[in-house]
Design a binder for these strands. Structure first.
Lengths: 337, 337
DNA sequence: CTGTTAGCGCGTTCAA
DNA sequence: TTGAACGCGCTAACAG
């Protein structure tokens, strides 16, 4: 490894002079500067950021920890991209990992990232106790929570308006005459319970009893969800519309509708948009989140905490958007009870 | 920040003893060990990995640089996920970034990551000179190239069999009677030229002249590709089949076919699979790459270089798989010339 | 079994 | 304008 000393020796100056040249500080005699730069070039010297940081140097080239649920999930991937882009100007880099909704692993990841000396953290925490985040925040680590509400006053969060998004979806289906609406979801995390509550609120507004609808909160796995949807469709009293609570579940419902050749007559709205959703027959009506904006806001808040060394306590809610593509605009065809 | 000294003071021992306890090395008296562990717990001490590394400690908790084309692209995202998963057991973390096919930026990223003291690098390099990788490799940094061939003997690569995959796609369409096949792609990178060559080889095998087919190598942008496809469909001598050269282009072609209501009569095969491809009408026949396997192999090679301190020079080619879903099995309907 | 010494690469502080 | 000394947090090597 080429160190500052090697460069100094090659250029015939002291390490300090090299440091000054590399960091563009102070005034350095231009001949020396040239000598140093030539040596840097020749030896391929790359400064050791860890050592600088250890020595106490402040930099704006932050190392940001980014913990998402699953980097391969389209929503997470877009969020990742957005954060990366927002960070790019400052020359900051992200240490990225997926937590798979496993709280213990998330805790471990935070530890490891702290050991790696991250300057800030953006995390989509798994369900459950966020105490490990509180502890980390107390040491002065700036943290922003995304996609989940924060347990702590001192930790800001950026999150979609899950409740309102789902309520809109529900209202939309009701406006097309549907009452027997099947909701496939779970209640394992706060966003999911918010979506469930949005659905219930939509029903209540229209004075639809929860027994008239079909509410399945045990749908964790796409394959299982697909089977559930098929069996509902084949039951005595099938739904006239479906609501999917997240992107993988939406795909499952679409598969079920197609497998039973009912996609033209049974309505469907999905929470979370999917690539190609517009090219289906009919196109999938979706409640779209805005991962790009969420990422931008989260990054902006974090940068503010980092640069101004202050504690933020704001919680931002980003609204969703209902995109009508056909599947949600199928009117109820079945006779009224 | 809590350091080893703080813990030592709190536990009434020397820093060295704390180090031994934390690193589980040597034998430490069990009472002392307990005292130390209690202090660690109480103070929330997190060891500074950078400092350990600076001191020269070897660890198996590697920090791996991962430079992809675009973390939000489904192919890259799957690759990312696979690498992350393969790395997880060793407790390694990735410093991840997108290069947007910009060589200069990729060069800069490698610099920055080197400054961050990464132990190894997995990169999907942009088109153009890879000299910056050669230089980095010469300093002893283990590098594995993915999704692109390597310019250097000493840098191993893992890549899909683009040539063969595209040749299979072409043969497949030809076996359904197609001769006037429109290929929408570019030749801006080695994988793309390999796909182009695979297409040409497929034509040649069937003694189809290149003037009989439609070969567009100027399709970089999905929106532009969509327009191209529409205008081809509306021309005097339209193609009876399309080939898309990558995922975003496939979507564009599907959109064009649907917009012109020709998806049932014009065949189509896409290179790269897409979520929901099976739920289209007809389903999209695709040449699927295997990002999971590519990631596993790349990680395995890198780990071998890291752990055994040796230089690998192998190049691995991962085969593709043709998935028939309907769009590629539409026979030619137009009269023979 | 435990502590002391020294130094990894770097930059702040101060002296020249 | 330049350089020397010092110490950031940590641990290998040695001493006790």
């Amino acid at each position: 490894m080429i160190t500052i000393k090697d460069v100094a020796k090659a250029a015939g100056v002291s390490p300090m002079t090299v440091s000054r040249v590399v960091n563009r500080t102070d005034n350095v005699n231009s001949t020396m500067r040239k000598r140093v730069l030539r040596a840097v070039e020749q030896l391929g010297y790359v400064p050791n950021l860890s050592a600088s940081k250890l020595r106490g140097k402040k930099s704006t080239h932050w190392t940001i920890g980014l913990i998402l649920r699953d980097v391969a999930n389209p929503f997470s991937a877009e969020l990742h991209r957005s954060i990366e882009k927002s960070l790019r100007d400052s020359g900051s880099l992200t240490l990225t990992a997926s937590n798979d909704d496993d709280r213990d692993y998330a805790r471990e990841l935070v530890m490891t990232m702290r050991a790696h000396q991250i300057d800030g953290l953006i995390i989509a925490p798994p369900p459950g106790n966020q105490s490990y985040l509180g502890a980390a925040a107390e040491t002065g680590l700036p943290i922003v929570i995304v996609d989940r509400p924060s347990d702590f006053e001192q930790i800001p969060s950026v999150i979609s308006d899950n409740y309102d998004g789902m309520r809109q979806a529900t209202r939309h289906l009701i406006s097309y005459g549907h009452r027997r609406i099947a909701y496939l979801g779970d209640e394992a995390s706060v966003p999911m319970t918010a979506r469930r509550d949005g659905f219930l609120a939509g029903l209540q507004e229209a004075t639809i009893d929860t027994t008239e609808a079909i509410i399945r909160l045990d749908q964790f796995d796409p394959i299982q969800a697909r089977e559930t949807a098929v069996s509902l469709l084949e039951s005595n009293n099938p739904p006239t519309a479906f609501i999917g609570s997240r992107n993988r579940i939406n795909v499952a419902i679409i598969q079920a509708l197609r497998a039973t050749k009912r996609s033209e007559e049974i309505a469907m709205v999905g929470f979370d948009d999917i690539e190609l959703a517009a090219e289906l027959d009919p196109g999938m009506t979706a409640v779209a989140q805005n991962p790009i904006l969420i990422g931008q806001i989260a990054t902006a808040i974090l940068m503010d905490m980092l640069e101004n060394n202050r504690v933020q306590d704001q919680s931002v809610v980003v609204s969703t958007r209902l995109i009508k593509r056909g599947s949600g605009e199928i009117s109820r065809t079945q006779p009224l009870n």
